[in-house]
Design a protein around this nucleic acid. Sequence first.
DNA 1: GAATTTTATGTTAGCGCTGAGATCGTGGGT
DNA 2: ACCCACGATCTCAGCGCTAACATAAAATTC
Lengths: 338, 338
Amino acid sequence: MREIMTQSSMPTLVHVARLAGVSENTVSRVVRNKGSIADITRERVLAAIQTLGYVPNRAAGSLASSGSFLVGVLLPSLSNVVFPELLEGIHAALRQTSYQALVGVTDYNEEQEEQILSSLLAWRPVAIITAGFDHTAKTRLMLDSSALRVAEVMDIDGEPIDVAVGLSHRMAGYDTGRFLIGRGYRRIGYVGHDWTTDRRARHRYEGLRQALAEAGTSLVDEALAAGPSSATTGREMLGSLLRRQPNLDAVAFSNDDMATGGFFHCLSAGIAVRERLALFGFNGLEIGQALPLPLSTVRSNRFVIGKTAVERLLEHRVRPEDRIVVDTGYEIVEGATA
Amino acid sequence: MREIMTQSSMPTLVHVARLAGVSENTVSRVVRNKGSIADITRERVLAAIQTLGYVPNRAAGSLASSGSFLVGVLLPSLSNVVFPELLEGIHAALRQTSYQALVGVTDYNEEQEEQILSSLLAWRPVAIITAGFDHTAKTRLMLDSSALRVAEVMDIDGEPIDVAVGLSHRMAGYDTGRFLIGRGYRRIGYVGHDWTTDRRARHRYEGLRQALAEAGTSLVDEALAAGPSSATTGREMLGSLLRRQPNLDAVAFSNDDMATGGFFHCLSAGIAVRERLALFGFNGLEIGQALPLPLSTVRSNRFVIGKTAVERLLEHRVRPEDRIVVDTGYEIVEGATA
DNA sequence: GAATTTTATGTTAGCGCTGAGATCGTGGGT
DNA sequence: ACCCACGATCTCAGCGCTAACATAAAATTC
């Protein structure tokens, strides 16, 4: 292993080829493991690569073969744990391949999404993974009419462009409602966060309402925060909800962060969780299970979603005729708070 | 805005040039905003780009100009919140530029780090950001001897290759010790997680011990978990520590996740936090501040670290003579648990 | 108004790699 | 001995773009 030279003078195929005494193309074939190569040649080439510290130039490869070994990932944010977890799944699946993820963060901003999608597309990825079905017309057009594979993940309550991987948030909300009803709760409230940035939360909310309606009841009251979800927000919002409705017997939260905050409120206010007020979350985060009473919630597996999306995407290089929907499901975690 | 064609037949500079009635090079100059272009020409070109839905091919550009507009990011994991937060800062800083982040996750595995660094290098990024100073000899050699800019972030307790951005974890640990001593605690314990994957936690631990030693005391006992940090782990470890040492008056945790778990243990075990047992964390996570008693901790700003690293890196395209160390500092959060 | 600079554009030669063929032995099959 | 298939290699033309230089017209200078 020799010293690697300055970026501009990094060794290229030519250098390796010369050193190994073969043609450029042979080196290329060795590197890519393609075509038939005599063992002796392969070894000589590999040795030369080693000595020079040759690192293939993917930009050149991509240009020559019009195929990039890149998967574009479009996420609204990284501050909500679910997205890093999704990303972990994506990376885990990618690890076994020679593909790499190129991540763009849209900040829940649709114009930015367009702009970022363009810059991802500039690298000619073979596939794009995007969280959810919310796109501007232009974004959707870019995705829709380009030939690349597209996975819309997290959510399957919509019409996919190509592949959708995730769970039905509406159903998860519905099952939350069924669960609470089944436990005998009737005076149910809801604490949520800003829906404009989290449409999935709204779907869960709608499912919840539907379940309650079918059971002949409905939400007593709800408190919606303006900003994103957080434990602090959940705590405050439960406080104000209970001020208005002191005799609720259960509260469904938009997610576990919020529910954890709600749990803290109960602690501070001396409210016996479950005995006097049941709490229910969504996501199945670790923190919820570490609470003195494990949080009752719905576990959605973000890691699996990311992994599955990559696997499905890389199965075929061209978009198949039929849309694919993979339901990764969810699981009611009974916990001890509801 | 017309339909975008299949990937293979995506419009190129030639198409735009033909439609606009100018040379390829002129289009290129319009796209890159470089050189002088007559307003009328610019408009015609822009219009053509619009009609064709032209997206420049970065691979080709990168190849032709040997400069890629990519920043490689090497992270050990995404499951510890601090890394997504760092990444957010990186993305935020990159947003204003035309650079993009190419992220690799090493899974705390040094061989994987090498392999992933190679694949990042294959795209010829202009800079690499890597968390911490832990590298294999080969990794370090690649980084060291290549011409690209390198930022080692999170940690400044080490000798940087080029730029280091972060805080002294040793000092943060030391100040934790000073703080606890200052508050009058003397029977202090420590609850930590696996150090092999988190050397920074070890530095804090060492700083803590030093502070106690200088005050003429030392840790009464410590409980180290085998795995990564989590609330559950913190909870269990505090339990076992207290079983051995029931009359500690304070416990320092390796981070806020662990401390939060510790808080939950106290809740379950009916231990009055601060009155009977003080708790101290590290990181300043939101969850800690949402607890019924806000957690006493040290706030380290991961977002700022990521942002600063990018800014420093993009200041100059070539590595300057002198190593740069940026101390982003930290802040003791008094909280109510210690 | 000739000389000089500036502005706006065109021309050309690659960047490092891959794909499609071309080439040249070698070993069967008949 | 002849033909053919096959394995192992090479040759060469680009992929889409940009840098460097060349050119032509317009603006400035003296």
